[in-house]
Design a protein around this nucleic acid. Sequence first.
DNA 1: TAGCTGAAGTAATCCGTATTAGCAGATTCG
DNA 2: CGAATCTGCTAATACGGATTACTTCAGCTA
Lengths: 322, 322
Amino acid sequence: MAGVSQTTVSLVLNGRAEGEVRISPETRDRVLQVIRETGYVADPAARRLVERRNRIYGVFTYEAVFPAESADFYHPFLVGIEECAEEAGCDLLLFTSAKVEQGERRRIFSAESRIRLADGCVLLGRTIDRDDLSRLLSEGIPFVSVGRRDDAGGPVPYVGADYPPAVRALVGRAAALGHRRMAYVGSGQGPESYADRLRGFTEGVAAAPGVEGVHLTSADGLFDAGATVVFAEELADGAAIAEVARARGLDVPRDLSIVALGAPTRPVSTDIDFAGFRIPRREMGRRAVELLTHVLEHGGAPQELLACELVEGSTLAPPAQR
Amino acid sequence: MAGVSQTTVSLVLNGRAEGEVRISPETRDRVLQVIRETGYVADPAARRLVERRNRIYGVFTYEAVFPAESADFYHPFLVGIEECAEEAGCDLLLFTSAKVEQGERRRIFSAESRIRLADGCVLLGRTIDRDDLSRLLSEGIPFVSVGRRDDAGGPVPYVGADYPPAVRALVGRAAALGHRRMAYVGSGQGPESYADRLRGFTEGVAAAPGVEGVHLTSADGLFDAGATVVFAEELADGAAIAEVARARGLDVPRDLSIVALGAPTRPVSTDIDFAGFRIPRREMGRRAVELLTHVLEHGGAPQELLACELVEGSTLAPPAQR
DNA sequence: TAGCTGAAGTAATCCGTATTAGCAGATTCG
DNA sequence: CGAATCTGCTAATACGGATTACTTCAGCTA
């Protein structure tokens, strides 16, 4: 349509006409005009084949992104990811095709995996398969995880929430209010985020003179433990504990303080305004895309932790007088 | 590694060795063995290049998809779209790069439009630019609109909600309860969905003997119109009317019945359980993807309307006795 | 006028896969 | 015994775009 060769179109399309290669302004404008009229776009697969960038960032989640159950969890991350992708002029590819058998979760590397269609990939999820991670690393696929991940045959690029200092600070607050016996309820293992919270708790207790800490994997023995404040690994745990406490005639926070280490911004089946912290999810999403761009350009495995802002809430108060 | 040509590997990999093309079992096993050992996977980009299909479906919205303001509106559609794309083995491309100047809305055909990256496209939005639609049609870009659209230089493929029968049925219900003077509040034009609702109202009134209908573009003159039931074009309108009615000392539904023709499933700033109908958004999303697949394979411009389920609610009752 | 230079653009090649036509050797047919 | 058929495999090519080496032509120099 512009009366030029495929080569020329390619050169114009990629702005190479300004540098070493010479294309006259007239020709260039003619080509650009036709491109504009037709909305021509280079085929991403072909481009990809020649090993160049697509301006497509993939987003991988093990579960569906949109359904209501997980929506509240993923949503803030996606807002940030979308914002930043928009600024970077990139499109987002949701790997919805990565399904396997009914009932199974998605896998990054299925036989039909199209992860390589994207320039790079943002990984989202509470836990991410270790094998998947190490394979991503060993195959050199650019990616950034949202959420800290332990090494998987090498350092994993991530942007996570910095739980330990936040939890330590909360333990410190509780100590300052006079609490001397504190409980952590939750597994403290599995996802890195749980381990980080427990670690923060342990460190916080160790740093507070005269404070005793106990780790319970479930709320069962909680009320026999004599704790005046409980740190719940998840907001849901906190809600459950509050429920039981009330059933036993205990007042929160007069008789028992509760600190929720989950995501207080999330609307759960409780309207208690828990003390805790805010996970900067939107910022994490944004930063993940920024880091991905960086990885694509310079390589490496950047790791960043973003601070969690403490939330005052109404469930942390001085312990009742004996 | 297996001592065979690339062709043979391809044939074995795709199971073509059983049919027309012949590969000896020994050779085949040898190749499979090497594939197993190396974890070889065909490059999806190259594969797509040959297939001339990327298995990417685009999702275009005029506003950002994820931000909280629009989330409630788009979310159910996206659930359906994602579900169905997953079943179809396709990835979703969100046109996040279609940004223009700050403050402006996205455009399908910007100078930088990347719509052709996708095999086809699902369009989402209350209103869609007529020029965009007719250009999509004239350029033969496969797409399906979520929401009915008037012709734009040709029939537009869509899956919409079937408002007229739903509104007619609601008018019928009101008539059966004894209402004789009914008002429709809303523009009745602009988006096709508004026009369809007003049309349903008009038809419903015409079909109900002894019933008078009046169309008001705003709620201003409502209380002078003498209507005992009001059909609000949007849920928000309904909420506003209820507010004003209460301020005037009117009881809903004793003194005034209100039917909301919007989306009662949406959590708005009201907790009134309006009478109205449920827009089958999730199903619309699903069906849109199914239709898009159909369009890609067979062409055409399928048009479908899905029924809205009536919602009883608590705002429609017999009119007060004079 | 031969020789050189720079500007503008293009033919040829490659990326990794799927597909098709075809080839060499063995077997069967007439 | 030559021709046809079958068997098992591969060379060549297409897909769409990026890159590189090269061609062509005009203008300039000595």
